[in-house]
Design a protein around this nucleic acid. Structure first.
Length: 203
DNA sequence: AGCCAGGCTACCG
DNA sequence: CGGTAGCATGGC
């Protein structure tokens, strides 16, 4: 049993199942965690927009912005295209960086519409303005069930604390560590990343 | 009253 | 190339 697996088991024991990615319940307009795979393109689009909104922002704030969009029925390509930049800025304001995020969402929406149900490649995602490694990997893992391990600030802090990396390790270094020490299992990757965030939050 | 939040881009040397 | 300022609001 390697260290990466025991850390996972410890975190699972401590925090319980997280069930990411949260999806808005259409009736209650509440973000729910049920750990199901995305059922359709609408849910995938919602996950992608949520991933952009939560960049360097707490999910509490990103979720509010997402619900605002859901309430005005703008969480689909057709409506998102029609909404003005000014209006979009207004409703996502609570998630911060609203000028940049408006531009990112608009650009991403065009990309998404051209996918027509296909799974995007990581390379294509990274070529989109506003989509970096963490956002791309979040979209792939939670939106499309592609087994890529997501690295974030919490992940680095955790591995540093465990003495498994040094300070100068970068995103790709950390990702390789997880890929080499765990079986490529989508459910495991989803839950593990969520648990790392849960652990990171409480301090 | 600061500091931080589930990053990314642009620009600097 | 690696390093870093700027983006912005809300919660604590």
């Amino acid at each position: 049993m390697n260290r990466f697996k025991t850390i996972y088991q410890d975190l699972l024991k401590k925090h319980g199942k997280q069930g990411w990615w949260p999806i808005i319940n259409s009736k209650t307009l509440i973000c729910e965690y049920h750990a199901g795979d995305p059922k359709n393109d609408a849910e995938r689009f919602e996950i992608c927009i949520g991933a952009i909104l939560t960049q360097n922002t707490s999910w509490t704030q990103a979720g509010k912005a997402l619900i605002n969009l859901k309430r005005m029925n703008a969480l689909n390509v057709k409506r998102m295209r029609r909404i003005s930049d000014g209006k979009l800025k207004e409703v996502i304001k609570c998630a911060g960086y609203y000028n940049q995020k408006t531009k990112k969402i608009k650009i991403f929406t065009e990309f998404f519409s051209k996918l027509r149900g296909q799974i995007p490649t990581r390379k294509d995602l990274l070529n989109i303005w506003g989509i970096g490694k963490e956002t791309a990997d979040s979209i792939l893992l939670y939106g499309y069930n592609v087994p890529v391990f997501i690295i974030d600030a919490y992940t680095k802090r955790l591995l540093l604390k465990e003495g498994l990396i040094d300070e100068k390790a970068g995103y790709d270094d950390l990702q390789q560590l997880f890929h080499r020490n765990l079986e490529k299992n989508v459910k495991l990757f989803k839950e593990y990343h969520a648990l790392i965030v849960a652990e990171g939050k409480i301090k």
